[in-house]
Amino acid sequence: AEKTGIVNVSSSLNVREGASTSSKVIGSLSGNTKVTIVGEEGAFYKIEYKGSHSYVAKEYIKDIKDE
């Protein structure tokens, strides 16, 4: 089941290729951006990003809701 969340950062949140802080950064999301969460892996959520799937750190996503 998909969930949505809100990016909870003051500046921007790195979007990564994989579920690791050493993964390549492929983009960023600004605070209060709504994201669609399709899964989770460790400390990361797998999200829909620009037509494919990428990862963001869970600690920076708030207001998780089931869609």
Results as ranks from 00 to 15, higher is better:
32 N>K: 08
32 N>W: 10
67 E>V: 14
19 A>I: 05
61 I>M: 04
31 G>D: 11
1 A>Y: 15
2 E>R: 15
44 F>G: 00
27 G>C: 05
59 E>T: 07
30 S>V: 12
31 G>W: 10
31 G>F: 11
65 K>I: 12
57 A>G: 09
46 K>A: 07
29 L>K: 00
7 V>H: 02
10 S>M: 12
3 K>M: 11
38 V>C: 07
50 K>G: 10
62 K>G: 11
61 I>Y: 02
60 Y>D: 09
65 K>Q: 12
4 T>D: 05
4 T>V: 12
37 I>W: 01
23 S>L: 03
14 N>Q: 14
58 K>G: 02
13 L>W: 03
50 K>H: 10
18 G>D: 09
20 S>C: 08
33 T>N: 05
8 N>F: 10
53 H>L: 11
46 K>Y: 05
55 Y>Q: 01
7 V>K: 02
67 E>K: 11
24 K>W: 04
47 I>K: 00
16 R>V: 08
32 N>F: 10
12 S>A: 11
64 I>Y: 09
2 E>V: 15
40 E>A: 06
45 Y>M: 03
66 D>V: 14
45 Y>T: 01
41 E>Y: 07
62 K>T: 14
5 G>E: 03
67 E>I: 14
34 K>E: 08
39 G>N: 05
2 E>H: 15
11 S>Q: 11
53 H>Q: 08
63 D>Q: 12
62 K>R: 12
3 K>A: 06
37 I>P: 00
52 S>H: 10
1 A>S: 13
48 E>Q: 11
9 V>F: 07
28 S>V: 13
15 V>N: 01
19 A>S: 07
52 S>M: 13
22 S>W: 07
13 L>I: 15
7 V>P: 03
67 E>M: 13
25 V>D: 02
56 V>H: 01
65 K>C: 12
26 I>V: 13
54 S>K: 10
35 V>S: 00
47 I>D: 01
38 V>I: 12
21 T>E: 14
11 S>M: 10
66 D>H: 12
4 T>W: 13
11 S>G: 15
26 I>H: 04
57 A>D: 10
61 I>K: 00
55 Y>M: 01
37 I>H: 00
34 K>N: 05
48 E>H: 09
31 G>C: 13
6 I>A: 04
6 I>V: 12
54 S>V: 14
48 E>R: 10
18 G>F: 14
10 S>T: 13
58 K>E: 01
54 S>E: 03
4 T>Y: 14
22 S>H: 11
26 I>N: 04
45 Y>P: 01
5 G>W: 07
33 T>A: 08
49 Y>W: 10
38 V>Y: 07
44 F>M: 04
19 A>N: 04
63 D>I: 15
55 Y>H: 01
60 Y>E: 07
55 Y>F: 12
23 S>Y: 05
14 N>C: 15
40 E>G: 04
43 A>G: 13
56 V>E: 00
67 E>L: 14
53 H>T: 09
38 V>N: 04
67 E>R: 04
21 T>S: 13
30 S>I: 13
38 V>M: 07
8 N>T: 13
41 E>P: 00
53 H>A: 07
19 A>K: 03
57 A>K: 11
9 V>C: 15
39 G>S: 06
28 S>W: 10
45 Y>A: 01
32 N>C: 14
45 Y>K: 01
39 G>D: 07
17 E>Y: 05
63 D>F: 15
36 T>Q: 08
28 S>F: 11
50 K>I: 06
22 S>C: 13
2 E>C: 15
55 Y>I: 01
28 S>Q: 15
19 A>L: 03
1 A>M: 14
10 S>R: 07
21 T>Q: 12
61 I>H: 01
10 S>A: 13
52 S>W: 07
10 S>D: 12
30 S>K: 14
54 S>R: 11
15 V>W: 01
48 E>F: 11
61 I>A: 01
42 G>K: 05
20 S>K: 05
51 G>V: 02
9 V>T: 13
66 D>R: 06
36 T>I: 14
56 V>Y: 00
63 D>V: 15
6 I>C: 10
56 V>Q: 00
2 E>P: 15
23 S>C: 08
13 L>T: 08
25 V>F: 04
6 I>K: 06
62 K>C: 12
8 N>W: 13
56 V>T: 01
24 K>Y: 05
19 A>D: 02
45 Y>N: 00
51 G>L: 04
43 A>Y: 07
58 K>N: 02
47 I>N: 00
66 D>K: 08
22 S>P: 03
51 G>T: 05
59 E>D: 09
31 G>K: 14
16 R>P: 01
62 K>M: 13
43 A>M: 11
3 K>Y: 09
37 I>L: 04
51 G>K: 05
35 V>H: 00
37 I>N: 00
66 D>E: 14
31 G>H: 15
55 Y>E: 00
63 D>K: 09
3 K>T: 08
16 R>A: 04
23 S>K: 03
52 S>L: 12
65 K>L: 11
51 G>W: 04
3 K>V: 09
66 D>N: 12
25 V>T: 06
14 N>I: 14
37 I>V: 05
49 Y>L: 03
50 K>F: 11
3 K>Q: 07
17 E>V: 07
49 Y>M: 02
17 E>N: 08
25 V>C: 07
2 E>Q: 15
29 L>Y: 02
51 G>P: 01
22 S>I: 08
29 L>D: 01
6 I>N: 04
7 V>M: 03
25 V>S: 05
53 H>G: 04
13 L>C: 15
15 V>S: 01
57 A>T: 06
31 G>Q: 12
47 I>V: 05
57 A>H: 07
11 S>K: 09
40 E>V: 07
5 G>S: 04
27 G>Y: 03
60 Y>G: 12
18 G>H: 14
56 V>G: 02
34 K>T: 11
4 T>Q: 10
33 T>P: 02
2 E>M: 15
30 S>C: 14
15 V>I: 07
9 V>A: 11
59 E>V: 10
36 T>K: 13
44 F>P: 00
59 E>P: 05
5 G>L: 04
28 S>H: 14
41 E>S: 09
58 K>R: 07
64 I>A: 08
7 V>F: 03
59 E>G: 07
14 N>M: 13
7 V>W: 02
8 N>M: 14
37 I>R: 00
59 E>H: 08
49 Y>C: 03
59 E>M: 11
63 D>S: 09
29 L>I: 11
64 I>S: 07
8 N>Y: 10
33 T>Q: 10
55 Y>P: 00
19 A>H: 05
67 E>Q: 13
58 K>W: 02
5 G>Y: 06
59 E>W: 07
43 A>T: 09
62 K>Y: 10
12 S>D: 09
13 L>M: 06
41 E>G: 03
44 F>I: 01
25 V>E: 03
8 N>A: 14
9 V>H: 12
30 S>Y: 09
64 I>E: 08
35 V>T: 01
35 V>P: 01
43 A>D: 15
54 S>D: 02
34 K>A: 07
51 G>M: 05
62 K>Q: 10
22 S>G: 09
36 T>E: 05
5 G>M: 06
34 K>D: 03
8 N>L: 09
57 A>L: 15
60 Y>Q: 06
4 T>G: 05
54 S>C: 15
16 R>L: 15
20 S>I: 04
32 N>I: 05
